[in-house]
């Protein structure tokens, strides 16, 4: 997370806003554009507004929810974090939500961190060095992309089952096992993306540092990586969100309720039980969504550039 936080703070300074747009058009000509925009905003936001309202309404059930809360309360948030025995009482609002949040943070942060670091290392090699197998390596990365890990979920499951009998830290139902499996996706299209960015950093910088006596490792850590901070932040965020959204592998590898990540845990929490759990669920959604949306807003400019360069959030 450190990389992302830093960059988020650094962006306003790095990209000064320079707005010299054309003459403002008359409202008479653009009113319909505003109407369309507002319709789109209503459609885009009504589930969000609705969930926010449900989170702050005292009534925990779906049937009792409404768009405008009658009185505001934090009951749902308290219920979500109060220890309880959800295993014995299905109508209870208690859940292992704090565990799920913590597990997800651990898994997503470690995966994002290693994705950025290991990916950047590889991307740097592809960008700066000319070696035998370079072209094959980059093409190979693209080829591997077409067989995403989730297609091999059966094999991954069986491998983890077998590995787990020998190494208990990597067994089923461990976060370390899940993280290490996710790290298989480190060398992905992200490497292409980062390589493209490194290509735009003048090689003269490297060379002058080398003349000063720096080793390739020192050039990488000291010169190139700091300059690539924005792109690293975006890759980190995408990787973080990717893990946050990942359901298949997590649901197959994690089994006990306290070990689950958010998607698996929250699906189980409300599945077929909307009437009981809607309020606390809504509170849980808000807590999980707000930080991600804020990060997205901060990094929006880079994300748009990344999108047009061809990476898909997933």
């Amino acid at each position: 997370m450190t990389a992302i936080d830093q960059t988020a703070a650094a962006i306003p300074a790095a990209r000064p806003a320079t707005k010299t747009g054309p003459r403002r058009p008359k409202l008479r000509d653009t009113w319909w554009r505003h109407v369309v925009a507002w319709i789109a905003i209503v459609v885009a936001l009504f589930p969000v507004a609705y969930i926010a309202s449900a989170a702050f309404t005292g009534n925990p059930s779906l049937a009792g929810s409404s768009l405008i809360p009658r009185h505001l309360t934090l009951d749902n948030f308290k219920k979500l974090f109060s220890p309880g025995n959800s295993t014995t009482d299905i109508t209870s609002n208690a859940s292992n939500y704090p565990h799920w949040i913590l597990n997800t943070l651990i898994v997503a942060t470690s995966t994002a961190f290693f994705t950025v670091m290991l990916g950047a290392l590889a991307a740097y090699a592809f960008s700066r060095f000319r070696f035998r197998g370079r072209r094959m390596g980059m093409l190979g990365l693209l080829l591997v992309q077409m067989f995403p890990q989730m297609l091999a979920v059966v094999a991954i499951y069986l491998i983890v089952v077998h590995t787990g009998t020998v190494f208990h830290v990597l067994a089923l139902n461990t976060l370390t096992g899940l993280i290490i499996v996710y790290l298989g996706g480190v060398m992905s299209v992200n490497v292409w993306f980062m390589k493209g960015f490194f290509d735009t950093i003048p090689a003269e910088l490297d060379e002058s540092a080398r003349v000063d006596g720096a080793s390739p490792a020192q050039v990488f850590w000291g010169v190139v990586l700091p300059l690539a901070a924005p792109v690293l932040a975006v890759i980190g965020l995408f990787s973080f969100v990717g893990v946050l959204n990942e359901f298949i592998i997590a649901s197959v590898l994690l089994q006990s309720d306290k070990k689950l990540t958010l998607p698996v845990g929250m699906r189980g929490f409300i599945d077929q039980q909307f009437s009981q759990h809607w309020g606390p669920f809504a509170a849980g959604v808000l807590i999980a969504a707000v930080p991600v949306v804020i990060l997205f807003m901060f990094l929006q400019r880079f994300i748009v550039e990344g999108l047009t360069a061809g990476s898909v959030k997933g």
Binding site: A40, I41, L244, N245, M266, A288, A289, V292, F296, M297
Partner: peptide, 11 residues
């Protein structure tokens, strides 16, 4: 308008 995209999809 990008909020639905920024929200974690599973939520």
């Amino acid at each position: 308008l990008v909020i639905p995209y920024a929200l974690p999809g599973f939520l």
